[in-house]
Lab assay of single mutants.
Amino acid sequence: MIVFVRFNSSHGFPVEVDSDTSIFQLKEVVAKRQGVPADQLRVIFAGKELRNDWTVQNCDLDQQSIVHIVQRPWRKGQEMNATGGDDPRNAAGGCEREPQSLTRVDLSSSVLPGDSVGLAVILHTDSRKDSPPAGSPAGRSIYNSFYVYCKGPCQRVQPGKLRVQCSTCRQATLTLTQGPSCWDDVLIPNRMSGECQSPHCPGTSAEFFFKCGAHPTSDKETSVALHLIATNSRNITCITCTDVRSPVLVFQCNSRHVICLDCFHLYCVTRLNDRQFVHDPQLGYSLPCVAGCPNSLIKELHHFRILGEEQYNRYQQYGAEECVLQMGGVLCPRPGCGAGLLPEPDQRKVTCEGGNGLGCGFAFCRECKEAYHEGECSAVFEASGTTTQAYRVDERAAEQARWEAASKETIKKTTKPCPRCHVPVEKNGGCMHMKCPQPQCRLEWCWNCGCEWNRVCMGDHWFDV
Protein backbone atom coordinates (compact mmCIF):
# COMPACT_ATOMS: atom_id res chain seq x y z
CA MET A 1 0.00 0.00 0.00
CA ILE A 2 0.99 3.65 -0.43
CA VAL A 3 1.06 6.32 2.27
CA PHE A 4 1.88 9.95 1.58
CA VAL A 5 4.52 11.57 3.78
CA ARG A 6 4.71 15.31 4.37
CA PHE A 7 8.18 16.06 5.71
CA ASN A 8 8.34 19.23 7.83
CA SER A 9 4.96 20.25 6.33
CA SER A 10 6.38 20.45 2.80
CA HIS A 11 4.87 18.81 -0.27
CA GLY A 12 4.09 15.14 0.19
CA PHE A 13 5.73 12.16 -1.46
CA PRO A 14 4.55 8.54 -1.65
CA VAL A 15 6.14 5.73 0.35
CA GLU A 16 5.30 2.07 -0.24
CA VAL A 17 4.68 0.10 2.96
CA ASP A 18 3.14 -3.17 4.10
CA SER A 19 0.60 -3.61 6.89
CA ASP A 20 3.35 -5.00 9.15
CA THR A 21 5.86 -2.22 8.37
CA SER A 22 6.94 -0.62 11.64
CA ILE A 23 6.94 3.12 12.22
CA PHE A 24 10.72 3.01 12.73
CA GLN A 25 11.12 1.37 9.32
CA LEU A 26 9.04 4.19 7.84
CA LYS A 27 11.34 6.68 9.58
CA GLU A 28 14.40 4.98 8.10
CA VAL A 29 13.00 5.28 4.56
CA VAL A 30 12.24 8.98 5.04
CA ALA A 31 15.57 9.64 6.79
CA LYS A 32 17.50 8.11 3.89
CA ARG A 33 15.54 10.16 1.37
CA GLN A 34 15.94 13.45 3.29
CA GLY A 35 19.50 12.85 4.53
CA VAL A 36 18.68 13.26 8.22
CA PRO A 37 19.08 11.00 11.29
CA ALA A 38 16.14 8.64 11.72
CA ASP A 39 16.19 9.06 15.51
CA GLN A 40 15.34 12.76 15.13
CA LEU A 41 12.14 12.11 13.18
CA ARG A 42 8.70 12.15 14.73
CA VAL A 43 5.69 10.68 12.94
CA ILE A 44 2.36 12.45 13.58
CA PHE A 45 -0.99 11.03 12.52
CA ALA A 46 -4.51 12.00 13.65
CA GLY A 47 -3.35 14.01 16.65
CA LYS A 48 -0.96 11.39 17.98
CA GLU A 49 2.77 10.73 17.78
CA LEU A 50 3.32 7.16 16.58
CA ARG A 51 5.73 4.92 18.49
CA ASN A 52 8.62 3.20 16.76
CA ASP A 53 7.42 -0.32 17.61
CA TRP A 54 3.91 0.18 16.22
CA THR A 55 3.02 -1.08 12.75
CA VAL A 56 1.10 0.56 9.94
CA GLN A 57 -1.89 -1.66 10.74
CA ASN A 58 -1.79 -0.80 14.48
CA CYS A 59 -2.03 2.88 13.60
CA ASP A 60 -5.09 2.48 11.34
CA LEU A 61 -3.22 3.84 8.33
CA ASP A 62 -5.23 3.13 5.19
CA GLN A 63 -4.34 3.32 1.51
CA GLN A 64 -3.09 6.84 0.61
CA SER A 65 -3.28 8.10 4.19
CA ILE A 66 -1.31 11.30 4.81
CA VAL A 67 1.19 11.27 7.69
CA HIS A 68 3.32 14.18 8.84
CA ILE A 69 6.96 13.62 9.76
CA VAL A 70 8.87 16.41 11.47
CA GLN A 71 12.53 16.64 12.37
CA ARG A 72 12.97 17.71 15.96
CA PRO A 73 15.85 16.81 18.29
CA TRP A 74 14.63 14.75 21.22
CA ARG A 75 14.18 16.49 24.49
CA LYS A 76 15.34 14.84 27.67
CA GLY A 77 13.24 11.83 28.64
CA GLN A 78 11.46 11.46 25.30
CA GLU A 79 13.73 9.19 23.30
CA MET A 80 13.23 6.08 25.42
CA ASN A 81 9.47 6.33 25.26
CA ALA A 82 9.39 6.80 21.49
CA THR A 83 11.55 3.76 20.79
CA GLY A 84 9.11 1.44 22.49
CA GLY A 85 11.58 0.65 25.26
CA ASP A 86 11.15 1.05 28.98
CA ASP A 87 7.98 3.07 28.77
CA PRO A 88 6.23 3.11 32.15
CA ARG A 89 2.90 3.29 30.33
CA ASN A 90 3.49 -0.25 29.06
CA ALA A 91 4.23 -1.78 32.46
CA ALA A 92 1.91 -4.59 33.49
CA GLY A 93 -0.81 -3.34 35.76
CA GLY A 94 -0.03 0.31 35.08
CA CYS A 95 -2.94 2.67 35.40
CA GLU A 96 -1.97 5.15 32.67
CA ARG A 97 -3.45 4.55 29.25
CA GLU A 98 -2.18 5.59 25.84
CA PRO A 99 -4.14 8.55 24.47
CA GLN A 100 -6.73 7.02 22.17
CA SER A 101 -6.21 7.49 18.45
CA LEU A 102 -8.73 9.72 16.70
CA THR A 103 -9.38 6.80 14.34
CA ARG A 104 -10.92 4.89 17.25
CA VAL A 105 -12.63 7.63 19.22
CA ASP A 106 -16.37 7.01 19.61
CA LEU A 107 -18.57 10.00 20.46
CA SER A 108 -21.90 8.20 20.01
CA SER A 109 -22.42 8.09 23.77
CA SER A 110 -22.66 11.87 23.75
CA VAL A 111 -26.11 11.62 22.17
CA LEU A 112 -27.26 10.38 25.58
CA PRO A 113 -29.33 12.72 27.76
CA GLY A 114 -27.65 15.30 29.91
CA ASP A 115 -28.21 13.28 33.10
CA SER A 116 -25.78 10.61 31.84
CA VAL A 117 -22.69 12.74 32.42
CA GLY A 118 -19.47 10.78 32.16
CA LEU A 119 -20.74 7.90 30.08
CA ALA A 120 -18.98 9.13 26.96
CA VAL A 121 -15.69 7.95 28.43
CA ILE A 122 -16.82 5.35 30.97
CA LEU A 123 -19.38 3.23 29.13
CA HIS A 124 -18.16 1.24 26.14
CA THR A 125 -20.50 -0.98 24.16
CA ASP A 126 -19.60 -4.52 23.14
CA SER A 127 -21.57 -4.36 19.92
CA ARG A 128 -18.55 -3.88 17.66
CA LYS A 129 -17.87 -7.55 17.11
CA ASP A 130 -18.97 -7.50 13.49
CA SER A 131 -16.64 -9.49 11.29
CA PRO A 132 -14.49 -7.29 9.06
CA PRO A 133 -15.45 -7.04 5.40
CA ALA A 134 -13.60 -9.02 2.78
CA GLY A 135 -10.29 -7.44 1.95
CA SER A 136 -9.97 -5.45 5.15
CA PRO A 137 -6.93 -5.99 7.39
CA ALA A 138 -7.25 -8.72 9.97
CA GLY A 139 -8.69 -7.48 13.21
CA ARG A 140 -9.90 -4.17 11.76
CA SER A 141 -13.43 -3.39 12.97
CA ILE A 142 -16.11 -2.20 10.57
CA TYR A 143 -17.71 -0.13 13.33
CA ASN A 144 -18.03 3.47 12.17
CA SER A 145 -17.79 6.21 14.79
CA PHE A 146 -18.53 9.17 12.51
CA TYR A 147 -20.66 9.95 9.48
CA VAL A 148 -20.29 12.80 7.01
CA TYR A 149 -21.95 14.02 3.86
CA CYS A 150 -19.44 13.69 1.03
CA LYS A 151 -19.92 16.46 -1.53
CA GLY A 152 -17.21 14.96 -3.72
CA PRO A 153 -17.41 11.76 -5.73
CA CYS A 154 -19.79 9.99 -3.34
CA GLN A 155 -22.60 12.57 -3.13
CA ARG A 156 -24.07 10.71 -0.16
CA VAL A 157 -23.75 9.95 3.54
CA GLN A 158 -20.55 8.02 4.20
CA PRO A 159 -18.44 6.90 7.17
CA GLY A 160 -16.12 9.74 8.15
CA LYS A 161 -12.60 10.14 9.49
CA LEU A 162 -11.82 12.56 12.32
CA ARG A 163 -8.61 14.53 11.92
CA VAL A 164 -7.00 17.44 13.78
CA GLN A 165 -4.66 20.27 12.88
CA CYS A 166 -2.93 23.13 14.64
CA SER A 167 -5.17 26.20 14.62
CA THR A 168 -2.08 28.44 14.26
CA CYS A 169 -0.18 26.96 11.30
CA ARG A 170 -3.09 24.83 9.97
CA GLN A 171 -0.85 21.77 9.65
CA ALA A 172 -1.79 18.30 10.91
CA THR A 173 1.30 18.22 13.14
CA LEU A 174 -0.42 18.86 16.46
CA THR A 175 -0.33 16.13 19.12
CA LEU A 176 -3.30 16.24 21.48
CA THR A 177 -2.89 16.51 25.24
CA GLN A 178 -5.91 14.22 25.52
CA GLY A 179 -8.47 12.89 23.09
CA PRO A 180 -12.02 14.24 22.72
CA SER A 181 -14.77 12.54 24.72
CA CYS A 182 -17.90 14.26 23.39
CA TRP A 183 -19.11 16.13 20.32
CA ASP A 184 -18.65 19.51 22.00
CA ASP A 185 -14.92 18.76 22.26
CA VAL A 186 -14.82 18.40 18.49
CA LEU A 187 -17.31 21.01 17.32
CA ILE A 188 -16.48 23.95 19.63
CA PRO A 189 -13.33 25.79 18.45
CA ASN A 190 -10.27 25.94 20.76
CA ARG A 191 -11.84 23.61 23.31
CA MET A 192 -9.04 21.01 23.07
CA SER A 193 -5.33 21.68 23.37
CA GLY A 194 -2.06 20.06 22.39
CA GLU A 195 1.42 20.87 21.13
CA CYS A 196 2.28 21.61 17.52
CA GLN A 197 5.39 19.67 16.46
CA SER A 198 6.15 21.84 13.42
CA PRO A 199 9.45 23.70 13.79
CA HIS A 200 9.03 27.27 15.02
CA CYS A 201 5.24 26.96 15.52
CA PRO A 202 4.05 27.79 19.06
CA GLY A 203 0.48 26.57 18.44
CA THR A 204 -1.38 24.85 21.28
CA SER A 205 -5.03 24.91 20.12
CA ALA A 206 -6.62 22.02 18.24
CA GLU A 207 -8.87 22.42 15.22
CA PHE A 208 -10.81 19.30 14.25
CA PHE A 209 -12.12 18.47 10.80
CA PHE A 210 -13.62 15.49 9.01
CA LYS A 211 -12.90 13.64 5.79
CA CYS A 212 -14.88 11.10 3.82
CA GLY A 213 -13.72 7.61 4.75
CA ALA A 214 -14.94 5.95 1.56
CA HIS A 215 -12.17 7.18 -0.76
CA PRO A 216 -8.67 8.71 -0.61
CA THR A 217 -8.73 12.47 -0.02
CA SER A 218 -6.33 15.36 -0.44
CA ASP A 219 -5.34 17.77 2.33
CA LYS A 220 -8.00 20.28 1.31
CA GLU A 221 -10.91 17.84 0.93
CA THR A 222 -13.10 18.05 4.03
CA SER A 223 -16.67 17.02 4.77
CA VAL A 224 -19.32 18.21 7.21
CA ALA A 225 -19.89 15.94 10.21
CA LEU A 226 -23.46 14.69 10.68
CA HIS A 227 -23.32 14.23 14.43
CA LEU A 228 -26.92 12.98 14.77
CA ILE A 229 -26.15 9.94 12.61
CA ALA A 230 -24.73 6.95 14.45
CA THR A 231 -24.06 3.27 13.97
CA ASN A 232 -27.01 1.40 15.47
CA SER A 233 -24.87 -0.53 17.95
CA ARG A 234 -27.83 -0.87 20.33
CA ASN A 235 -30.15 -2.44 17.73
CA ILE A 236 -32.91 0.13 18.24
CA THR A 237 -35.97 -0.19 16.00
CA CYS A 238 -36.82 2.66 13.63
CA ILE A 239 -39.68 4.78 14.96
CA THR A 240 -41.43 4.66 11.57
CA CYS A 241 -40.84 1.28 9.92
CA THR A 242 -39.88 -0.59 13.17
CA ASP A 243 -36.98 -2.33 11.39
CA VAL A 244 -33.53 -2.54 12.96
CA ARG A 245 -31.22 -0.80 10.49
CA SER A 246 -27.89 0.97 10.55
CA PRO A 247 -26.84 3.73 10.47
CA VAL A 248 -29.65 5.72 12.06
CA LEU A 249 -30.43 9.33 12.93
CA VAL A 250 -30.96 10.05 16.64
CA PHE A 251 -33.17 13.07 17.27
CA GLN A 252 -32.20 15.48 20.05
CA CYS A 253 -35.49 15.14 21.92
CA ASN A 254 -35.54 13.87 25.52
CA SER A 255 -36.36 10.32 24.37
CA ARG A 256 -33.64 10.33 21.68
CA HIS A 257 -36.01 8.76 19.14
CA VAL A 258 -34.29 6.78 16.38
CA ILE A 259 -35.19 6.79 12.69
CA CYS A 260 -33.48 4.95 9.83
CA LEU A 261 -32.09 7.07 6.99
CA ASP A 262 -34.62 5.86 4.40
CA CYS A 263 -37.53 6.83 6.65
CA PHE A 264 -35.85 10.14 7.49
CA HIS A 265 -35.61 10.86 3.75
CA LEU A 266 -39.31 10.06 3.32
CA TYR A 267 -40.21 12.18 6.36
CA CYS A 268 -38.29 15.17 4.96
CA VAL A 269 -39.73 14.86 1.43
CA THR A 270 -43.28 14.56 2.80
CA ARG A 271 -42.84 17.66 4.94
CA LEU A 272 -41.19 19.48 2.03
CA ASN A 273 -44.05 18.68 -0.34
CA ASP A 274 -46.52 20.06 2.22
CA ARG A 275 -44.22 23.01 2.99
CA GLN A 276 -44.38 22.07 6.65
CA PHE A 277 -40.75 22.64 7.58
CA VAL A 278 -40.35 24.99 10.54
CA HIS A 279 -38.65 28.36 10.06
CA ASP A 280 -36.69 29.13 13.22
CA PRO A 281 -35.14 32.63 13.51
CA GLN A 282 -31.87 31.23 14.89
CA LEU A 283 -31.59 27.85 13.16
CA GLY A 284 -33.27 28.44 9.82
CA TYR A 285 -35.47 25.96 7.94
CA SER A 286 -35.61 22.75 9.96
CA LEU A 287 -37.69 19.82 11.23
CA PRO A 288 -38.42 18.48 14.72
CA CYS A 289 -38.46 14.86 15.86
CA VAL A 290 -40.82 12.77 13.76
CA ALA A 291 -42.92 12.14 16.90
CA GLY A 292 -43.45 15.88 17.38
CA CYS A 293 -41.36 16.08 20.56
CA PRO A 294 -40.79 19.61 21.91
CA ASN A 295 -37.42 21.36 21.56
CA SER A 296 -36.20 18.81 19.03
CA LEU A 297 -35.43 20.89 15.92
CA ILE A 298 -32.39 19.68 14.00
CA LYS A 299 -29.69 22.31 14.53
CA GLU A 300 -27.10 21.16 11.99
CA LEU A 301 -28.94 21.74 8.72
CA HIS A 302 -26.41 19.75 6.68
CA HIS A 303 -28.34 16.66 7.84
CA PHE A 304 -30.90 17.57 5.16
CA ARG A 305 -28.25 16.76 2.55
CA ILE A 306 -29.67 13.24 2.96
CA LEU A 307 -32.47 14.46 0.66
CA GLY A 308 -30.18 14.28 -2.37
CA GLU A 309 -29.21 17.09 -4.73
CA GLU A 310 -32.60 17.75 -6.36
CA GLN A 311 -34.66 17.71 -3.16
CA TYR A 312 -31.99 19.62 -1.25
CA ASN A 313 -32.18 22.40 -3.85
CA ARG A 314 -35.95 22.53 -3.24
CA TYR A 315 -35.30 22.67 0.49
CA GLN A 316 -32.96 25.64 0.05
CA GLN A 317 -35.41 27.41 -2.26
CA TYR A 318 -38.34 26.93 0.12
CA GLY A 319 -36.19 28.01 3.03
CA ALA A 320 -35.24 31.24 1.26
CA GLU A 321 -38.88 31.88 0.35
CA GLU A 322 -40.00 31.27 3.92
CA CYS A 323 -37.38 33.72 5.13
CA VAL A 324 -38.79 36.38 2.78
CA LEU A 325 -42.34 35.75 4.03
CA GLN A 326 -41.22 35.89 7.67
CA MET A 327 -39.70 39.32 6.95
CA GLY A 328 -43.05 40.60 5.67
CA GLY A 329 -42.23 40.12 2.00
CA VAL A 330 -44.16 38.50 -0.83
CA LEU A 331 -43.35 36.08 -3.64
CA CYS A 332 -44.03 36.91 -7.26
CA PRO A 333 -47.13 34.87 -8.25
CA ARG A 334 -46.26 34.59 -11.96
CA PRO A 335 -45.66 30.91 -12.87
CA GLY A 336 -41.99 30.15 -13.30
CA CYS A 337 -40.81 33.21 -11.35
CA GLY A 338 -41.46 33.18 -7.58
CA ALA A 339 -38.89 35.89 -6.85
CA GLY A 340 -38.85 37.18 -3.26
CA LEU A 341 -39.83 40.84 -2.92
CA LEU A 342 -39.82 43.23 0.04
CA PRO A 343 -42.28 46.06 -0.73
CA GLU A 344 -43.21 48.81 1.71
CA PRO A 345 -45.79 47.72 4.33
CA ASP A 346 -48.65 49.81 2.84
CA GLN A 347 -47.72 49.27 -0.81
CA ARG A 348 -50.56 47.51 -2.67
CA LYS A 349 -49.09 47.52 -6.18
CA VAL A 350 -46.03 45.32 -6.29
CA THR A 351 -43.79 45.07 -9.33
CA CYS A 352 -41.37 42.19 -9.75
CA GLU A 353 -38.34 44.27 -10.66
CA GLY A 354 -36.54 43.01 -13.72
CA GLY A 355 -33.13 44.40 -12.83
CA ASN A 356 -30.10 42.07 -12.85
CA GLY A 357 -32.22 39.39 -14.46
CA LEU A 358 -33.79 38.43 -11.12
CA GLY A 359 -37.38 39.63 -11.66
CA CYS A 360 -39.90 39.18 -14.45
CA GLY A 361 -41.47 42.67 -14.45
CA PHE A 362 -44.93 41.40 -13.52
CA ALA A 363 -47.07 43.94 -11.59
CA PHE A 364 -49.60 42.35 -9.22
CA CYS A 365 -51.96 43.15 -6.39
CA ARG A 366 -50.52 42.42 -2.98
CA GLU A 367 -53.94 41.39 -1.63
CA CYS A 368 -55.19 38.89 -4.20
CA LYS A 369 -51.91 38.12 -6.05
CA GLU A 370 -53.65 38.74 -9.41
CA ALA A 371 -52.48 41.22 -12.06
CA TYR A 372 -52.66 44.68 -10.57
CA HIS A 373 -56.07 46.36 -10.71
CA GLU A 374 -57.82 49.41 -9.28
CA GLY A 375 -60.63 49.03 -6.78
CA GLU A 376 -61.52 46.06 -4.60
CA CYS A 377 -60.32 42.56 -5.35
CA SER A 378 -63.00 40.41 -6.99
CA ALA A 379 -62.38 37.48 -4.66
CA VAL A 380 -59.83 36.47 -2.11
CA PHE A 381 -59.55 32.73 -1.55
CA GLU A 382 -58.11 31.27 1.60
CA ALA A 383 -55.21 29.01 0.85
CA SER A 384 -56.19 25.40 1.27
CA GLY A 385 -54.17 22.64 2.79
CA THR A 386 -52.05 24.95 4.94
CA THR A 387 -52.93 23.41 8.28
CA THR A 388 -50.12 21.48 9.83
CA GLN A 389 -50.83 17.77 9.87
CA ALA A 390 -49.16 15.52 12.37
CA TYR A 391 -46.84 12.86 11.00
CA ARG A 392 -48.46 9.65 12.25
CA VAL A 393 -46.25 7.62 14.56
CA ASP A 394 -47.35 4.52 16.44
CA GLU A 395 -47.01 5.05 20.21
CA ARG A 396 -45.57 1.58 20.79
CA ALA A 397 -43.02 2.11 18.01
CA ALA A 398 -42.05 5.44 19.57
CA GLU A 399 -41.56 3.76 22.94
CA GLN A 400 -39.26 1.12 21.48
CA ALA A 401 -37.31 3.53 19.24
CA ARG A 402 -35.52 5.32 22.09
CA TRP A 403 -31.73 5.49 22.17
CA GLU A 404 -31.97 6.59 25.80
CA ALA A 405 -33.93 3.51 26.89
CA ALA A 406 -31.37 1.11 25.43
CA SER A 407 -28.60 3.05 27.11
CA LYS A 408 -30.28 2.90 30.51
CA GLU A 409 -30.90 -0.83 30.12
CA THR A 410 -27.22 -1.36 29.26
CA ILE A 411 -26.17 0.69 32.27
CA LYS A 412 -28.49 -1.27 34.54
CA LYS A 413 -27.13 -4.64 33.40
CA THR A 414 -23.41 -3.92 33.12
CA THR A 415 -22.59 -1.15 35.58
CA LYS A 416 -22.51 -0.36 39.27
CA PRO A 417 -22.09 3.06 40.87
CA CYS A 418 -18.76 3.99 42.38
CA PRO A 419 -19.25 3.90 46.20
CA ARG A 420 -17.72 7.36 46.56
CA CYS A 421 -18.85 9.51 43.59
CA HIS A 422 -21.70 7.28 42.28
CA VAL A 423 -20.61 7.49 38.64
CA PRO A 424 -21.71 4.35 36.69
CA VAL A 425 -18.70 2.09 36.05
CA GLU A 426 -18.80 -0.81 33.62
CA LYS A 427 -17.31 -4.24 34.39
CA ASN A 428 -16.52 -6.27 31.31
CA GLY A 429 -14.84 -9.43 32.56
CA GLY A 430 -11.72 -9.36 34.74
CA CYS A 431 -11.36 -9.42 38.52
CA MET A 432 -13.41 -7.81 41.29
CA HIS A 433 -10.84 -5.05 41.86
CA MET A 434 -12.31 -1.88 40.33
CA LYS A 435 -10.92 1.62 39.97
CA CYS A 436 -13.19 4.62 39.43
CA PRO A 437 -12.32 6.25 36.07
CA GLN A 438 -13.27 9.72 37.28
CA PRO A 439 -10.03 11.76 37.64
CA GLN A 440 -11.45 13.54 40.69
CA CYS A 441 -12.20 10.25 42.48
CA ARG A 442 -9.99 7.26 41.46
CA LEU A 443 -11.39 5.18 44.35
CA GLU A 444 -10.27 1.53 44.32
CA TRP A 445 -13.26 -0.60 45.30
CA CYS A 446 -14.72 -4.10 45.20
CA TRP A 447 -17.33 -4.98 42.60
CA ASN A 448 -18.71 -7.78 44.78
CA CYS A 449 -18.96 -5.91 48.10
CA GLY A 450 -19.48 -2.38 46.84
CA CYS A 451 -16.99 -1.05 49.38
CA GLU A 452 -13.41 0.24 49.32
CA TRP A 453 -10.90 -2.43 48.25
CA ASN A 454 -9.37 -4.22 51.25
CA ARG A 455 -7.39 -7.32 52.25
CA VAL A 456 -10.55 -9.36 52.89
CA CYS A 457 -11.73 -8.78 49.31
CA MET A 458 -8.24 -9.58 48.04
CA GLY A 459 -8.07 -12.90 49.88
CA ASP A 460 -11.68 -14.04 49.55
CA HIS A 461 -13.05 -13.16 46.10
CA TRP A 462 -10.46 -11.21 44.12
CA PHE A 463 -10.85 -13.38 41.02
CA ASP A 464 -14.43 -14.63 41.43
CA VAL A 465 -16.47 -14.53 38.23
Rank of each mutant, 00 (worst) to 15 (best):
F4T: 08
F7R: 02
P14L: 02
E16T: 07
V17P: 01
F24C: 08
K32A: 15
G35K: 07
V36M: 05
D39R: 05
L41H: 01
F45I: 05
G47R: 01
G47A: 02
K48F: 02
D60S: 10
D60C: 09
L61S: 01
L61Y: 02
V67T: 01
R72F: 13
Q78F: 14
Q78S: 13
Q78L: 14
T83Q: 14
G85A: 12
P99R: 14
L107E: 15
L107A: 14
L107W: 10
S109D: 14
S109N: 12
V117T: 12
I122R: 14
T125L: 05
P133G: 11
P137W: 10
G139E: 13
N144I: 04
C150E: 00
K151M: 13
P153C: 06
P159T: 09
V164C: 05
Q171F: 05
A172K: 12
L176C: 07
C182K: 08
W183Y: 06
D185K: 02
R191K: 11
M192V: 11
S198V: 08
C201N: 01
P202Q: 10
P202M: 12
T204P: 03
S205H: 10
K211G: 11
C212W: 00
P216T: 10
S218M: 08
S223M: 07
A230T: 11
T231N: 14
T240A: 14
D243R: 12
V244A: 06
V248R: 00
Q252P: 15
Q252D: 09
V258H: 02
I259W: 01
L261G: 02
Y267K: 01
C268H: 01
C268D: 00
C268A: 14
P288N: 08
C289W: 00
A291V: 08
G292T: 05
C293K: 00
H302R: 08
E309R: 14
E309D: 15
N313C: 09
Q316E: 11
E321R: 07
E322C: 04
E322H: 05
M327V: 08
V330P: 03
R334W: 06
P335D: 05
P335C: 05
G340A: 11
Q347D: 12
G354E: 09
G355F: 10
G355K: 09
G361K: 05
R366D: 03
R366N: 08
E367I: 15
C368A: 02
E370Q: 07
V380N: 07
F381E: 06
T386A: 14
T387W: 08
V393W: 06
V393F: 07
V393T: 07
A397D: 13
A398H: 09
E399C: 08
Q400T: 13
R402A: 07
W403L: 06
A406Q: 12
S407Q: 09
K408S: 10
E409G: 06
T410W: 09
T410K: 09
I411H: 10
T415S: 10
P417H: 12
C418Y: 01
C421E: 02
C421T: 00
V423K: 15
P424R: 07
E426K: 08
M432D: 02
H433C: 05
Q438Y: 04
P439R: 08
R442K: 14
E444Q: 15
W453V: 03
C457V: 01
W462Y: 15
